[in-house]
């Protein structure tokens, strides 16, 4: 009789641990998935840039430095070997794009160009997507981290080696904003 009770208790415990473990795995996959989503959007931005540069070149060929800056920032971001460097390279790319948009303001013909207008819409949308996917990633990270920190799931998390995931904060807040122009 006693052995049956012991076995039953152990069985319940095992099922309970399995449940928590699976829950943690699910949350961690959500986090990974959200990170992949950010990656997709960053790639989308990289793909847009050559097209954008070509269009702008047709109207503002003598803005060489700005265009060159965008191209360089892009290749740096594409080639970034790890997450930390990619975050920094993406920040630089955002700043370069911001400068390009300021330059564009001086070319009314370009601003009225149909091709440019649709590119601008795509770019706005991409920036939004990057922002929203980062937000979604952070939401998922928070849910995951809260689960890891709180009892009793923290016991399971510790024994199976789950680690807290870092939030994706843009370190240099200035990189996100459009650069200020001084005359």
């Amino acid at each position: 009789m006693e052995t049956i009770i012991v076995i039953a208790v152990i069985a319940v415990l095992v099922v309970w641990v399995i449940g928590i473990y699976n829950g943690l795995v699910k949350l961690r996959n959500h986090v990974k998935n959200a990170w992949a989503q950010i990656d997709v959007q960053l790639k989308r931005r990289h793909d847009l840039i050559p097209n954008l540069v070509e269009t702008v070149k047709g109207y503002a060929s003598h803005e060489k430095n700005t265009l060159q800056g965008v191209i360089e920032a892009r290749s740096k971001a594409v080639a970034a070997p790890d997450v930390a460097q990619q975050v920094q390279a993406e920040g630089e790319l955002s700043a370069a794009l911001g400068r390009l948009m300021v330059v564009v303001e001086q070319y009314p013909d370009l601003k009225a160009n149909q091709n440019f207008l649709s590119l601008q819409e795509e770019l706005t949308s991409t920036e939004n997507r990057i922002g929203f996917s980062r937000q979604n990633y952070n939401d998922n990270v928070m849910r995951f981290n809260t689960r890891i920190q709180s009892f009793p799931s923290n016991v399971v998390a510790n024994s199976f080696g789950f680690h807290e995931e870092p939030f994706f904060e843009v370190k240099d807040e200035a990189a996100r904003q459009a650069p200020e122009v001084k005359f």
């Binding site: 989503q37 819409e121 795509e122 949308s125 979604n136």
Partner: peptide, 16 residues
């Protein structure tokens, strides 16, 4: 309708 399409996609991402 590119803009509507984009906005819906953005919100799909934001809502996860």
């Amino acid at each position: 309708i590119p803009r509507l399409w984009n906005v819906v996609e953005e919100m799909t991402i934001a809502a996860g």
